[in-house]
């Protein structure tokens, strides 16, 4: 139990630090690397919460997929423009105030809803997720798929060359 608590705080600290680094570092490539670190830390938080499936999906889709695509975009644009991209932000203070307000709001909401985190009854949570997706949430799941296809088509539409 102590081990889990220590692990949680260590991972949480790493998560917060790398998330801050994502928005504060001027080097865009470093920002993406910090983002990868933050996503991996999030995955480890899932693992500590006994959600192994979410851990794997988080790594596969975000740390493996999204970060790869972002790096691809940065590399391509740097090559095309031939100059280092830098991240500038004139709204650091405003951003800090806003994010602190959101944090207080969410934290207050969580603390007032006195739902204790009870572990689900079933031992195999992956199976529960699978049953939920093809069972009660089948329509939602399919609608999400349609939404993503629409987004993909929209991206293709905007990216097409005029000819």
């Amino acid at each position: 139990m102590i081990f889990a608590t220590v692990m949680f705080w260590a991972v949480a600290l790493a998560l917060v630090a790398s998330s801050l680094a994502v928005v504060l570092t001027p080097n865009l490539f470093h920002a993406v690397l910090y983002l990868a670190a933050a996503l991996v830390a999030t995955a480890v938080v899932f693992l500590l919460l006994d959600a192994a499936f979410l851990f794997a999906v988080q790594l596969l889709l975000y740390a493996g997929g999204i970060v790869t695509v972002m790096v691809f975009a940065i590399m391509l644009t740097e090559r095309l423009t031939g100059q280092r991209l830098t991240q500038t932000n004139r709204h650091v203070v405003n951003g800090a105030v806003m994010s602190f307000a959101v944090f207080v709001g969410v934290a207050g909401f969580i603390m007032r809803s006195n739902a204790t985190a009870a572990a689900p009854a079933s031992a195999d949570r992956t199976l529960d997720i699978a049953r939920a997706i093809v069972g009660p949430f089948a329509v939602t799941f399919e609608l999400l798929g349609v939404l993503l296809v629409a987004a993909l088509l929209g991206a293709v539409y905007f990216a097409r060359t005029e000819d």
Partner: peptide, 23 residues
């Protein structure tokens, strides 16, 4: 119980080290 998925997910991370080296 997510063995195969764990394998696939973790090996997807390899690319991060690869482009860190390349960059």
């Amino acid at each position: 119980n997510i063995g195969v998925l764990f394998f696939l997910a973790v090996s997807a991370l390899e690319i991060v080290g690869l482009f860190m080296g390349g960059w």
